[in-house]
Design a protein around this nucleic acid. Structure first.
Length: 569
RNA sequence: CGGGGCGUAGCGCAGUUUGGUAGCGCACCUGCCUUGGGAGCAGGGGGUCGGAGGUUCAAAUCCUCUCGCCCCGACCA
């Protein structure tokens, strides 16, 4: 492809409306443009990257026997009504009516439609197992689109669905997908973790997420440095650091206007880990008091697994229920359910005194309060691993893929059954598996860039190499450039040929910004010595090659250095 | 949906406090010149100041409403 004819609108400056590095670079280097909040246009370079990623995904999906299909984006409401999600899902679903007044929606995922198909076409155990996948547009009316192409309202997803006779078959398909995902992300050049995740509203039992570490990520992942335990903090368990019992006797202390943990600890000169934080939650409109240590955060999801769906109580609800304002709640003297984090079992603590402007020091579990015990804190860096007690690390990550064991949730609802060998009708056992190619793209940029721009992994770069003729006025250079361009293409490389009549500085800046892994530079300076340069974008390493037999030399050099590179990785 | 910020030329911004007929850099067009890290000179085109209403002799600037975008939080099937 000739640069002069390709649409690559690079920007000299970072776009104003962007925070994430990947967002800035992808806009600046001419890969994407924003149409509206959460709606992105993929320009020629950007679409090439997506196509490369999709190609890798297809190869790996096909390799595990999954079959590609294509599903409609527009769905009739009935299918979604059958699984209950038409009602369960709120504003996040785009809904519309067709001309006949029928309720329709835009697909946010395809469990319903895939299961509908299975329900209609699968009859016998002989038809199973099946794995179907598609690479298709999804639409979700996100409350807050953000970080460029990381969280958008319209996005492409590779989603696969497995259909099995039994749990054993599901496990096999689940593992096949997990391994295929490992190969996909490794081939895309990403650093990533496979972590335990919350099955959530997908309604399954087991789920994992594939997480690419990046400060732009929205998720936090707890990682054990010892045993390899890895889990999304949405469900990660941990042992909070031990706190020595100060052995305080019980006494009431005047703490005027000291409401928050910071205020109280500063006032009393004690660490937050000596405090009990009491949070009143409304679970199905019934009050439940949650107790965590002062240095912990209440994990609402863990809590709601015990208490039912809940929300923090409003200020006036606190007063009405407990008779005291929120800053001075104590865990004693109430007739409501108490759930405390296990870290509070031993020791003496400071808590609110159930009296405005007073706290109480030296209260003890078993003496002053008798809660139900559970892990209801958010795991944080430095907590002990629940399995091996080694310290946990917490890292911010981008969710690039997920796998769910769905079981029979969708097949039961939609009547996707088969007849087994004995003629018994049984629900199909399902799994679903997703990958966001745009997130792979963004994660790659997040993980691989420098001050000059993007550094693509070779597998997903828009081109294999870029030929840069620095001075188009130099006839010899021009001739060599043209020859390189056609020869290297013939040798099977995807070549971007910068034939623009621009100054060398502009071309080199653009080449670095765009981030194609190899640059073949034809410049006056080295040409005088009968040489051209081959530059590795990642390492900056430059090797000089003689003009004679150039194209083959370049291709040999890239191939051997690719091998060297992959060995040293 | 709650909190914060921002909408002025294609992009990045100043001007808004204190109302007086819109500016800078880059990009773009023409010509000259230049070619190893976003050159230089000369000339030129381009803006209903997000939108609507109001106050005023006069509004980018003040007031009211509204739309859009970004960031934090909630949400995220």
């Amino acid at each position: 492809m000739r640069y002069s004819r390709m649409f690559i609108p690079t920007l000299r400056e970072d776009p104003a409306e962007s925070e994430a590095i990947s967002h800035k670079l992808l806009v600046r280097a001419g890969y994407v443009r924003q149409l509206a909040a959460g709606l992105y246009i993929y320009l020629p370079l950007g679409w090439r990257v997506i196509r490369k990623i999709n190609g890798i995904m297809k190869e790996e999906m096909d390799a595990i026997g999954a079959q590609e299909v294509s599903m409609p984006v527009l769905h009739p409401s009935e299918v979604w009504e059958k699984t209950g999600r038409w009602a369960d899902i709120g504003d996040e679903m785009f809904r519309l009516k067709d001309r006949g007044g029928r309720d329709m929606c835009l697909g946010m995922t395809h469990e319903e439609i895939m299961t509908w198909l299975a329900a209609h076409e699968i009859r016998s155990y002989r038809d199973l197992p099946q794995s179907w996948y598609q690479i298709q547009t999804k639409l979700r009316d996100e409350a807050r689109p953000k970080s460029g192409i990381l969280r958008t309202r319209e996005f492409i997803m590779k989603d696969s669905y497995s259909f099995d006779l039994d749990e054993q078959g599901l496990n096999q398909n689940y593992n096949l997908h997990s391994e295929a995902y490992d190969r996909i992300f490794a081939r895309c050049g990403l650093q990533y973790y496979r972590v335990e995740s919350d099955p959530g509203m997908m309604g399954g039992a087991t789920a994992h997420e594939f997480m690419a570490p990046s400060p732009a990520g929205e998720d936090q992942v707890a990682l054990c440095t010892g045993c390899g335990y890895r889990a999304n903090v949405e469900l990660a368990v941990s042992m909070p650091s031990k706190v020595e019992d100060p052995g305080w006797p019980r006494e009431e202390i005047h703490t005027p206007e000291k409401r928050t943990v910071e205020e109280v600890t500063a006032f009393l000169g004690i660490p937050a880990s000596n405090l009990i934080k009491s949070v009143l939650m409304m679970a199905d409109e019934k009050p439940v008091l949650a107790l965590v240590r002062g240095d912990q955060e209440l994990h609402e999801k863990k809590f709601s697994r015990l208490a039912g769906s809940c929300r923090p109580a409003a200020k006036d609800e606190v007063r009405a229920t407990l008779g005291v304002e929120a800053g001075f709640i104590g865990p004693f003297g109430h007739q409501i359910r108490l759930i405390a984090d296990s870290s509070l079992k031993e020791g003496s603590w400071v808590s609110g005194a159930n009296k405005a402007h007073y706290h109480v020091k030296g209260i003890r579990a078993g003496v002053d309060f008798n809660p139900e015990w559970a892990d209801i804190h958010v795991a944080k860096e430095g907590d002990g691993c629940a399995t091996c007690a080694k310290p946990l690390k917490v890292e911010r990550c981008i969710e690039i893929g997920n796998i769910f064991k769905l079981g029979t949730r969708y097949s039961s609802a939609l009547g996707a059954t088969y007849l087994d060998e004995g003629g018994q009708s049984k629900p199909i056992i399902m799994g679903s598996y997703g990958i966001g190619p745009a997130r792979i793209m963004a994660s790659a940029v997040e993980q691989k860039n420098d001050a000059n721009g993007i550094i693509w992994p070779e597998s997903i770069a828009p081109f294999d190499l870029e030929v840069v003729v620095l001075n188009m006025g130099n006839e010899q250079a021009l001739k060599i450039g043209e020859k390189l361009y056609s020869d290297l293409a013939t040798l099977g490389f995807d070549v971007l040929y910068d034939d623009r009549d621009d100054r060398p500085g502009v071309k080199m800046k653009d080449a670095d910004l765009i981030g194609i892994p190899w640059q073949v530079v034809v410049g006056d300076r080295t040409l005088k010595e009968g040489q051209i340069e081959l530059k590795n974008r990642r390492t900056g390493e430059v090797s000089r090659l003689p003009v004679e037999g150039l194209s083959l030399a370049v291709s040999d050099e890239i191939r051997t250095r690719r091998q060297k590179g992959s060995k040293s990785k």
